[in-house]
Write a protein that binds this DNA or RNA. Sequence first.
RNA 1: GGAGAGAUGGGUGAGUGGCUUAAACCACCGGAUUGCUAAUCCGGCGUACGGAGUAAAUCCGUACCGGGGGUUCGAAUCCCCCUCUCUCCGCCA
Length: 418
Amino acid sequence: MLDTNFIFNNINEVKENLLNQGFKFDSDSFNVVYQKRKELITQVEALKQEQNKFTKEISKQKRKPNEKELLGIKELIEKIKILDSQRKLVEDDLATITLGIPNLCDSTVPIGKNEEFNVEITKYGRIPKFDYEPLDHTEIGKKLNLFDLERASKITGSRFNIYRGEGAKLERALINFMLDFHSKNGYEEIFPPFICNDKSFVGTGNLPKFEEDLFKLSNSNYYLIPTAEVPVTNMYADEVIDKKNLPLNFVAFSACFRSEAGSYGKDVKGLIRQHQFNKVELVKITSEENSQEEHEKLTNDACSILNELELPYRKVLLCTGDTSFSSNKTYDLEVWLPSEKKYREISSCSNFKDFQARRANIKIKSNNKVEFANTINGSGLAIGRTLVAIIENFQQKDGSIKIPNKLQPYFNNKTHIK
RNA sequence: GGAGAGAUGGGUGAGUGGCUUAAACCACCGGAUUGCUAAUCCGGCGUACGGAGUAAAUCCGUACCGGGGGUUCGAAUCCCCCUCUCUCCGCCA
């Protein structure tokens, strides 16, 4: 969430920045509520001061108030009550408005309304050449019995999957490989709950606006997490962190659950868009002055996994229209999929600046100065999509799949799936 | 699931209706002094919001002792509801 005073003092810049993201900010009604709140605070506090003065006087004189005084003070208290409840309503209104406003985009983010305006930064790796038409991952998976989408839909429904045999082992190998890699790189390993309460989701920006993307547990305020970002970022909610300990670096594996409402008809084939998938997530908590640098570092750390696995990919800077609600700046990493002959998102690395920290109330302290933290996160990587990329990019003419060299120690030192 | 005990500032922790402007200690910051990896002494030190101030410094005010209600002229303190933590019992992978 943005600071209300900042919005008020920079109303036109904020409006323009948000418009670049396709968000029409109603600045007039914001101003009305903002001013109304100030008025009510001023009024109610003046009355409270009057009441406190009276109370202190009584206390000092060590006596009880007489009947006439009581009558007057009770009238005052009644006024305070009325104004106070009005103030509360207005503050709720203001909170509703600000919680629904997206983060501003960094000045380096290209302006554009959709993914066509994203900017490719660099390409890495070599795109494999096949002297036959490469198969897609569902065909290969079926032939080698790596997963079983049909039976998954029987036991749960569409967009769920059962990994089987070598497929299950490959999924597990990737999880372990990524966790180990990032741990050695200075990230503390976290194994979080896969269910969080509503407050946590407000903290990261998923609620109140995007409830339809989530699976909610009935009769509770609990939701299944769509990413480990939610529990890990909120670990430090309502805390003040000593600046000396920054940055905090976390790597977390979790299953991720997304209702994918509104995505019907898109990428329905195979493992690309599932209701449940595995992901290793990187999260950093840092300070304002270091967040850009840490964002670049985190993105590079995610890239390293693709490099280690010898997967061809590109790094893309998202435009304003494609940058998500909470993010200030996002790089997507897109891996090459031979069957589609195009790059597909496998990681999204975002700098949220203090947007999430203000919502979750994560602060940092140094020399008696307290400020909101900056939060950064990115996939390092989405496991299912990595598995798809390996299957497709490392498919061999004889129908086998080569296992990338660095992954082999995690795969019983086997070189191929046959 | 049952019973009991708790939740106070960055941390530990005192405080059972007005003497609290929340003690004390630790940590932190500034200064002094002595000089063996530091010690001692002095001082400072919460957050949010509103107002004054060109601004910074600063000053004034209001609220905040897990969260929400209530009683009272006055609540960290009394009452009600909720959440969480710990201990014991039960059940359980």
